[in-house]
Each structure stands twice: as C-alpha cells, then as structure tokens.
Simulated scan of single mutants.
Amino acid sequence: MTIAAMPDRAKITPQSESENGAGAALPGLAMDPRKLLYMVTAIEQGSLSKAAKKLSISQPALTKSMDRLEHELGMQLLTRTPTGIIPTPLGELVYSHAKLIRDEIDLAETRLRADSAATNVVTVGTLPSIASRALPLAVARWKAQVPNVMLRVIERRQVDLLLGLFRREFDFVIAQTEFFDIFPEGLKQRVLFRDRLCVFARPDHYLFGLVEPSWADLARFPWVSPMIGWHQRAVFEKLVEAEGVPPPQQFIECGSIEFTKTLVAESDHLALLPAHSTIVEVKEGSIKVLPITFPALKRNIAVIFRETAPLNDMHRDFIAHLEAVGKELCTE
C-alpha cells in the first residue's frame, strides 16, 4: 500500500444548524488520512519503531505525526508504555474506522493488479459447510482441466458473502439461496443442488439408547452451533421454538465445520450439520445421525453472482463440476 500518495488532508465538517435542526454545530474535526494510516500500522505493530521501519520513515517523524494527529483531534489516541504502545478507548474507535480506509485501499490495489495481470485468477466465496467436502472434490476435477488457473477460496457466512460480492471481492459465491421476498438487486442466483441438515452425535451417545428421542431430550445436552447469523443456527432456534422446548443451557459457538465434527465425536455435544459434509466421518464411525423426528430440513445451494459480471466459460465449467459433485453427495 502506498501511503505517500494519499491526499494531505480531509476535513470532516458536521451539518450546520439549519441542516440538522439541532443546536449549534459541533466544531469540525480535521483528519489527515496519511496520519490515520500511520496510526493503524503503529497499533498493529505495537511499537513506533517497528511501525516506522514498516512504513519506511524515521521513528521521530512517526512520533511527530502521531502527536500532531492527537493535537488535531484534541484527544489522546495512544498510550506509550515501556514495552510499546497501546490504543486508548478513543484510539480503538478511530482505529476501527481508519482500518477500513486502509483495507479499501488495499482492495483497490489488488483489483488493479488483477485487472492488469495476464494470469487467470478465480476468486470464490463459499459457506464453510460447502468448503468441507463438496467444493474440494469439485476443485480437484476442475483443476485437472485448467492447471494454470489460480484459484482463491474464501469461507464466510452468508451475509458476508453477499456483501463481499457487492464489493467485487469475489467472482461468484456458493451459498444457500436467498430466502428474502425480494432478491438483492444487482445479483442473480442459480440452484445447483439440495442438501439436508441432520443432528449428529458420537455413536455411543446416551441418546441412541432412547427409543424415540425428543427435542426435550436433545436440549439436555450441550450443543456446538454456528455463530448467530449463520443458517444452521437460525434453523436450530426455529426448531426448538416450534417444539416449545427451552434452548440448551450449554452452547459453544463456532464457524468451523472441522472443529464442530471433532468436538461432536469426542464429547456429548450435539450439532446440526449438512449430511454431505459428514460423509467421511459417518463412514469411519466417529459420528452418527440421531433418529430425531422433525420436518425435512433441506436447503438449496446456489451460485450467486453480479448481473454486471456474468459468468464466463471458465466459471461455468467450475460450477458444472460443483453441481455434479453436490448432486452425487446429496444422493448418497
């Protein structure tokens, strides 16, 4: 990232009294974008000397820049300690916004390099559950045909995948179909296959000794669940609510499918997982589907892409392999 090319100063001025209808306008805050980016590096390095080296400037110049930033804002942003620097609460607030500026610049540079490069690069966003088995199998088949193409695979939750797609971070994403009444404007989706969610436990779990385990029985045990905002978590919460059962008292939140499967195999924890993501573990006998009766839990897995960036032949070939693999796994 080239900080030296940044404009010298951006002044942020609140709305006037006539515009916001409130009392007297607050004084404007003069923020130098270059100093904000310097501050990000300083906080992440934890030391002004390390940050200065990374920024290729002298430590006295960086120290002077940080002092001026604090003076311009009229607040202390950094606390100097014998072992380095740490942000104050206000410094943490400024850092969270300044980091977004830095990330946007990095993203712009990455896009410019990608557009000017001659090599083929495909960037795919995906749900962790799809990345655990279906996607790797499809990639193996696809890469055998296009060995010189670079592939980037990034795992995120559904909402972050869509946001990343709008931000042009991905060529396309593999996720569940959107369930809103109105599909997000500017995006298109095509269903590839349907997978099924099941409750898993270790084979010698107490619940397998019950003739007909109920949701009340399941709620007595600890669960490992995706974090709030993930599809499986929402499905689980709706199921428990529909059965009129209090939610489990013990929860571990985790976005990793591999962590979830291992924890289930090694403890009394239960988890709601896509069946295709557990094929290997089920065959090995480390985890097992519980015979719990509930409405069919199926979801459509789709490719989602921007209308302004339609899929090319290479993308369609990749997606065709994933579609075939998904259908094979979900019929086993």
Rank of each mutant, 00 (worst) to 15 (best):
T63P: 08
Q250N: 13
R299P: 01
D204H: 12
I228D: 14
I154N: 03
M39G: 03
W230R: 04
V245M: 05
D103N: 15
D67C: 05
A296H: 09
S65P: 04
H269N: 06
V224Y: 00
A114F: 14
D106R: 08
I174N: 02
H71V: 11
Y38A: 07
R194Q: 10
I43M: 03
Y38L: 09
S58D: 13
E237T: 14
V173Y: 00
E19S: 06
M6E: 05
A134K: 00
W223T: 03
V139M: 14
I319K: 00
K50R: 13
T262M: 10
A30T: 05
L78G: 05
A265L: 02
V94S: 04
T83K: 09
F193L: 06
P33E: 08
S65F: 05
D103R: 14
A140G: 11
P82C: 07
L162I: 15
E212D: 13
Q176A: 09
P295W: 13
V94H: 01
L135Q: 01
R141Q: 14
V289W: 03
S132G: 03
V191M: 09
F236S: 04
H231M: 02
F221M: 08
H97R: 14
K64P: 01
P248Y: 09
A42N: 07
T123N: 08
N148A: 11
R168S: 13
R316W: 10
R152Q: 05
M314E: 06
R233E: 12
C330K: 04
K50E: 12
K54Y: 08
S256F: 05
W223N: 03
V325W: 03
A309H: 08
E284H: 15
P184N: 13
A117P: 12
D195L: 05
T119L: 09
H269W: 03
Y95I: 05
A5C: 10
E185P: 08
D171W: 02
R141L: 12
F179I: 12
A138Y: 02
F208Q: 13
V289A: 02
P87K: 02
P222I: 13
F193V: 00
G74A: 06
K50G: 02
R157Q: 15
M227H: 06
F294V: 08
Y206F: 09
L270A: 06
T126N: 02
V264K: 00
T63K: 15
